[in-house]
Design a protein around this nucleic acid. Structure first.
Lengths: 140, 140
DNA sequence: AACTATTAATTGATATATCAATAATTGACA
DNA sequence: TGTCAATTATTGATATATCAATTAATAGTT
């Protein structure tokens, strides 16, 4: 039975959590997807990040990053700055609006993260992380 | 840092594992996606399953199931059988070709599953499963 | 029986995932 | 220095995810 496969349960957990956050985003009218939030957050945490680096950090395809950044640019949440040292790449950063957006909604996202691990001790969390890392290693 | 968020690591693990399997499928010329394999497998494990039930078991949207079944039907791996008791729904089952496909490739998929949990003791596997279930509960 | 609500599947629209191909730029090095 | 290789971002094609709207069929109610 497929429900007994650990990879299936990992995927299920990921889906359930994303759906939970997306529903909350929608309910509060954030007009953003979870994937878009993750990109914004990485940009917020980084200095002068390129699209290639964004793809690596977010574990997504460069082609997909291009398209999502187009949307975020349309929403005026990010800027693509040409950099003189290398005219092949852009430096991505948050617009003022983007910074405000992150600061305003970070508490909500933090609440989701806390809720996801409710009832798990520190030790259980570390343990889970470690087991996940080992599976990642096995599959790479 | 987003790498420290457990949900991020869960998602990463899911992605890495899917990519691993997909690469193997491609390398061996199976001409099928991982999502398609999962649907086939559920159909194989079920008797007279409807699309609605398939959506629930696979944790996917009914609209998405419709489209993936269209593809699997084009590949002649499944049949949609009209059922007289309820003409709104179909009974999905594997074609002969589909049964052969599953039987031929199941050992490969089993190998992937085993590889994913290589080095994890029975106890660690149970523990992981239990922690994942608790997170699923938290997010539902 | 007639009306209404519900259900199963489909379709449309938009966002994302992935691979392949391409364009522009930069790097390597003979 | 000029050619070829590698790099970064984009675009096209196809598959999947999700929501909303629609269609056809069935269930429930009076």
């Amino acid at each position: 039975m497929i429900e007994e496969v650990i990879l299936f349960q990992i995927d299920k957990t990921s889906k359930v959590a994303k759906q939970y956050s997306q529903r909350e985003f929608d309910r509060l009218g954030l007009e953003i997807t979870v994937e878009q939030w993750i990109l914004l957050k990485i940009v917020h945490e980084s200095n002068d990040i390129s699209q290639k680096e964004l793809a690596e950090k977010s574990l997504r395809d460069p082609a997909s990053i291009t398209r999502t950044l187009d949307l975020l640019q349309k929403k005026e949440l990010i800027n693509r700055l040409p950099i003189p040292e290398n005219r092949r790449q852009y430096s991505i950063d948050l617009s003022k609006k983007g910074v405000v957006f992150i600061k305003t909604n970070m508490p909500l996202v933090d609440a989701h993260r806390k809720k996801s691990i409710e009832g798990l001790s520190e030790k259980e969390q570390r343990n889970l992380n470690e087991l996940l890392k080992r599976i990642q290693e096995n599959m790479s």
